[in-house]
Design a protein around this nucleic acid. Structure first.
Lengths: 218, 218
DNA sequence: CGAGAAGATGACCGAGGGGTCACGTTGTGC
DNA sequence: GCACAACGTGACCCCTCGGTCATCTTCTCG
């Protein structure tokens, strides 16, 4: 990427346009969801449609670039919260943060809602997120903040669920999700109750098995 | 509608086609969600596209006809459960039933997910549902099965949320929602905890105020 | 400043969507 | 069985979308 002797160095206007494009797409996806058109994104970035496709071969690639970034930032938050003393509090804070992101980004909702047919990059980002959240949950479990049979996958899934619960109220009560997080987190607390009906899946393995090269990073 | 002396009585093949159409549309919407095309629905019913539009002027009308029916059947279930002795059990059963319907019908998920821009008939059906669920919840509250600040609107909203939570697992674990219903219902139980962060809206008043003639039925 | 390559552009394409309508078909009452 | 109105039909219209590409513009390096 750096200045190799001579020859191919990415042009200045190209990187500028790429930045404009990413910003515009981030906003457009957040406001309108995944169904926003490439034309609209191009307009908002102030470039022509062809330019969008020069930087991102398909719409899916563009969406994946933005969603991956969003998911990774959420992973970082989870990572930071691993160092908190009160693991229960940390877990709840993480959930609040995640739900807040969902409430602010329609495309994010769309993406986590539909598990199948997803860009490999996004699946990997979700995997990374699950890894960290698993640790976060394990700590809360060990501290007795949540019941023993709650896993990180439960938590990640609940993010989308709690947001969905509050979504119809989002216009008039932007913070209504706090109510449902409170309710749900209360249900997660450790108590001497019988085991939950269904065990959670070991991992949130999304989509097809044709993707053999999944564990390159981790 | 009945045989008026002479003149206009609906033709036999017309009512037959209408029935075929409704059945096909119900299945198609359930399998594919609201984005299934009118062409596909026509094919599945074994009629031409024009016939669909003869019976239902717009796609929205067709969708509303089916969703209304589904919502009203759910209302009936709630109504029946009003007569159960254990109101807490009844409320939980109702939730299980509702979530099961969501799990089996993608269009249903799509419709309850997006509150705005919805057919007036659907909004009214949701209103009717909310009414009954409010009663169901009130009984559970009075019997001490759920905390005092839980409303019927909470319950209706949670239906979509719990289903959404389990949706990514739906392919491999069709009954995974039972796990999350258990967790959530546990959070609803009466306990001496502080009040919930956000009060629920008095009603699930969906969409615009331009719809003045909302309370014609009820 | 000039040459050349990398980038930007927008007209264009094919697919697929909802909705329409002139015409052919069929059920119904007399 | 006749006539007519209601119904069924599918080609057609217009629109939007993701994606392409020949052409023009602009940055960069010498």
């Amino acid at each position: 990427m750096a200045g190799r002797t001579a020859a191919v160095q990415t042009r200045a206007d190209s990187v500028r346009n790429r930045r404009l494009l990413l910003r515009a797409a981030t906003e457009a996806f957040a406001e309108c969801g995944v169904d926003v058109s490439m034309h609209t994104i191009a307009q908002r970035a102030g470039v022509a449609k062809g330019t969008v496709f020069r930087h991102f071969p398909t719409k899916d690639d563009l969406l994946a670039a933005i969603m991956t970034q969003l998911l990774d930032r959420l992973s970082e938050t989870a990572d930071r919260l691993l160092r908190a003393d009160d693991a229960g509090r940390a877990l709840k804070d993480f959930m609040g943060h995640g739900i807040g992101l969902l409430a602010a980004d329609r495309a994010f909702c769309d993406v986590i809602g539909r598990p199948s047919l997803q860009h490999a990059d996004v699946r990997e980002a979700i995997d990374r997120l699950c890894d960290t959240v698993e640790d976060l949950t394990a700590r809360a479990r060990e501290q007795g903040a949540v019941r023993g049979d709650i896993t990180g996958t439960d938590i990640v899934l609940l993010l989308g669920g709690i947001h969905q619960t509050a979504q119809p109220l989002l216009d008039r009560e932007p913070r209504a999700w706090e109510r449902f997080l409170e309710i749900t987190f209360d249900g997660l607390r450790a108590r001497d109750r019988e085991a939950l009906p269904h065990p959670p899946p070991a991992r949130l393995r999304m989509a097809d098995p044709s993707d053999v090269s999944a564990a390159t990073k981790t």
